[in-house]
Amino acid sequence: RIEKCYFCSGPIYPGHGMMFVRNDCKVFRFCKSKCHKNFKKKRNPRKVRWTKAFRKAAGKELTV
């Protein structure tokens, strides 16, 4: 099963990425440490230029 990165919305293939479980049992999956570090710094994915959330908000990503 291919999961989605919580921060950048990129695909996470089986055996890859990192799973972060908070004390309230909420699960966050990250494709790379870059995404996990930005999440820990409480960065907003919509303001980080390389994420899909930014591209969609800025009108750069074509949605079908």
Rank of each mutant, 00 (worst) to 15 (best):
I2T: 05
Y6L: 04
Y6E: 04
Y6S: 12
F7H: 10
F7E: 15
C8F: 02
S9P: 06
Y13I: 11
Y13N: 12
Y13Q: 13
Y13P: 11
P14R: 01
G15P: 06
G15S: 04
G15V: 02
G15N: 09
H16G: 10
H16R: 05
H16V: 07
G17Q: 08
G17I: 03
M19W: 04
M19D: 10
V21N: 02
V21H: 00
R22P: 07
R22Y: 11
R22G: 15
R22W: 07
N23R: 04
D24R: 00
D24I: 00
C25E: 12
C25K: 07
K26I: 03
K26S: 12
V27A: 04
V27S: 04
V27L: 04
F28C: 01
R29I: 03
F30E: 01
F30L: 02
F30W: 00
C31N: 00
K32R: 06
K34L: 08
K34Y: 04
K34E: 14
C35F: 01
C35V: 00
H36E: 15
H36S: 06
H36K: 05
K37V: 10
K37F: 04
K37P: 01
K37T: 11
N38H: 04
N38D: 13
N38E: 14
N38K: 03
N38V: 01
N38A: 07
F39P: 00
F39A: 05
K40L: 11
K40R: 05
K41H: 08
K42M: 09
K42L: 12
R43W: 13
N44H: 03
N44G: 08
N44M: 06
P45E: 13
P45N: 10
P45H: 03
R46F: 08
R46T: 14
K47N: 12
K47Y: 10
W50E: 15
T51R: 02
T51V: 08
A53W: 05
F54C: 11
F54Y: 09
R55Y: 13
R55C: 14
R55H: 15
K56S: 11
A57I: 07
A58H: 03
A58I: 03
G59E: 14
G59C: 12
G59I: 06
K60S: 14
K60P: 15
E61P: 10
E61G: 01
L62K: 13
L62V: 06
T63R: 02
V64H: 08
